[in-house]
Design a protein around this nucleic acid. Structure first.
Lengths: 146, 146
DNA sequence: CAGCATCCATGACGATACTG
DNA sequence: CAGTATCGTCATGGATGCTG
């Protein structure tokens, strides 16, 4: 099918960064980020990774989320084969969401990122404060010490 | 300072998902995603992880990026302590970007996600095609096989 | 070369109202 | 309960022009 490799990291690992624009937009990392880089996907994946859950349960857990976004994100994740959606024809209807093997795999990979965030996000915040201090608040106000 | 833990994954691992709205918005994962979940951060981190680079070199490598977004994203990453910015007062000025230890650490964590993307993104794409087939194209047109 | 300032389009997201 | 539909807002990001 294809006569060239577009491996994002493999590219960097093996050939060095001088082969053109591999980053044009068809790189897998970009595609993944386009799908789960949004505001809620990872959180939902995380919750469903822990246990299956119904719609309103999810909504209550995440809380900041609107039902529109929950619905939309769930649909997107389902479409991508990352979560399952099981409908029971009770009255009223009961819908249970879960995670697929593929989704669980992704979650395992994301776990490293999540762990990093938990231990290091403070350093990032600190770096930001430090940066602001050095550069004053934006371009208008500077500290007067002279 | 704080009297409770807000660990995103730890929360799920240890206590089970029933403690309220831990996902409200102060969770580390959310914060991280707010910072690097954008369109270009990860790509830039990836490139700078391979080697230091100057502005226009980065721009040429990523190619789809506008200089506004490159500038903006670099500044954001620098502010967060993830990339370095070194200015040489040559003529004209020479600015070289690199990655910090913190950034390299994050990149290492992201690598798992990237690797997953490279091996599995096709499955995701396939799942999507499959989903579209089952549900027809949107809500108006369905396959007629009966 | 390495940017900043401005304008503008898109779409992500939230709020609200309604449905089976 | 589990959504869909619609509207408005705001941030993201691209295009363009200017600067030191």
């Amino acid at each position: 099918m294809q006569d060239g490799t577009f491996s994002t990291s493999g590219y960097l690992h093996e050939t060095g960064a001088s082969r053109g624009n591999v980053y044009a937009g068809n790189c897998p990392t970009r595609q993944l980020l386009d799908r789960i880089g949004d505001k809620w996907s990872v959180l939902i994946l995380l919750l469903l990774g822990a246990e299956d859950m119904r719609f309103n349960r999810l909504k209550r857990q995440i809380d900041g989320i609107s039902q529109k976004m929950l619905s939309q994100t769930l649909r997107s994740l389902e479409r991508d084969g990352l979560v399952t959606r099981a409908v029971e024809s009770t009255m009223p209807v009961t819908v249970t969401y879960g995670i697929t093997p593929l989704g669980r795999e992704l979650l395992a990979a994301l776990r490293f990122m999540i762990d990093w965030a938990e231990t290091r996000i403070e350093d990032v915040a600190a770096a930001q404060v430090d940066y602001e201090r050095r550069n004053g608040c934006a371009n208008g106000c500077q500290v007067r010490d002279g």
